[in-house]
Nucleic acid binder design. Structure first.
Lengths: 196, 196
DNA sequence: TGTCTAATTAGATAAACATCAAATAAAGGG
DNA sequence: CCCTTTATTTGATGTTTATCTAATTAGACA
């Protein structure tokens, strides 16, 4: 957890309208119009607030037909809200172990990916594994829905153990699964981002 | 915990300088000049921030000779920071003493409301008072904005002491007030819900 | 393709906020 | 009672922010 993320998070929560939105989303996903109606505000105002909430990663959006539902990521909320309690402590910095420079990330990719773009093996060390998962997951397009076969087929182009990779993507929050259909999660939800 | 206290708290933490102050105070009490020196800021700036931190209760001051030491109240910090995780829960505001069956709630209404729909008196027992507040507040529509007079006029149809009822609705989080304009809060925020 | 509906962007306005220098206050010690 | 040290208040300045209306975009569906 970096300082500016903490600041951004508390700025986001430090607004009466956004706390009311969080309260609503705690009961379940809700779309913009309904939030606006419930709070007596206009749609652009809700967009404005939702953007701020999404920037912290505590809220994410899922489209269903014409309507975009906003979800509260309660795990993230809990993690971010309690970060201030861990600041300065041993294991606060420990979660910073995931921090790597782009250069270091590229080195991990060089070590685990062949010149033909195949994954040699899944790294066992968490932070290296996350770099690899991030590196390959960028193939998918934001907002697009993939079925399991499409995901598997793509994984097979670079690695045999497609089941493990697919499961890790979901577990580590790179992807979101519902009814065996997969979507890329917003970059804000990734634990590590391979930029390049 | 009231909504505006939560907002004030997160506003207070949502600033780089104040997080840095909190980090310093976690190691022990410190006086203003030293904080200013450590952070490369001027004394008035520190006063400005300390005032905000004190307003939330997470920081308090103790004088020793002519030096004032600022202390971090970590218990308070923990309580305030985790409040957002409990918001909207059944017993967020008070304890499970507030839990009542719909049948019990109806009995309270029968005891305090005449057959003409007038409130005989405001219950002094908290949980009964909340039932009554919930019962009458359902008159308002979600998302609609009311001015003070409209609220007062409605209350007068069932009770003389409109100021108390109006204040209680805001204090107990049934309603939300801003610039003397009132809105119903989302039902999720009510400490007790009279379902009808 | 055109027409819904829902969401976002753009631009404007008014309010809130972080910071500083200068002036003032509060308290202790000679 | 003056001097020194520390903290607060005042007032100014530039920045950020919450909200709105109007215009635009993005999908879904017929």
């Amino acid at each position: 957890m970096q300082l500016d993320k903490m600041v951004k998070f508390h700025k986001a929560v430090g607004d009466v309208t956004r706390i009311r939105i969080i309260t609503l989303l705690k009961k379940g996903p809700m779309h913009g119009q309904e939030i606006a109606n419930r709070l007596g505000l206009r749609a652009p105002t809700i967009t404005h607030h939702i953007v701020k909430l999404k920037d912290t990663g505590m809220v994410y959006a899922r489209r269903d037909k014409n309507t975009i539902y906003f979800h509260l990521d309660e795990k993230k909320l809990e993690y971010m809200t309690t970060a201030i309690l861990r600041i300065g402590e041993e294991n606060f910095l420990k979660s910073e172990e995931l921090q790597m420079s782009e250069q270091e990330k590229q080195k991990v990719v060089q070590n685990f990916v062949t010149s033909e773009g195949k994954l040699k093996q899944i790294p066992s060390q968490l932070k290296k594994k996350l770099v690899i998962l991030s590196y390959f997951v960028r193939h998918f397009e934001t907002g697009k829905v993939y079925d399991e076969k499409e995901v598997n087929d793509y994984i097979k182009t670079f690695h045999d153990d497609y089941a493990t990779i697919r499961r890790e993507w979901v577990m580590q929050q790179f992807m979101y699964r519902e009814n065996n259909r997969y979507q890329l999660n917003p970059v804000e939800m990734w634990p590590v981002i391979f930029e390049k």
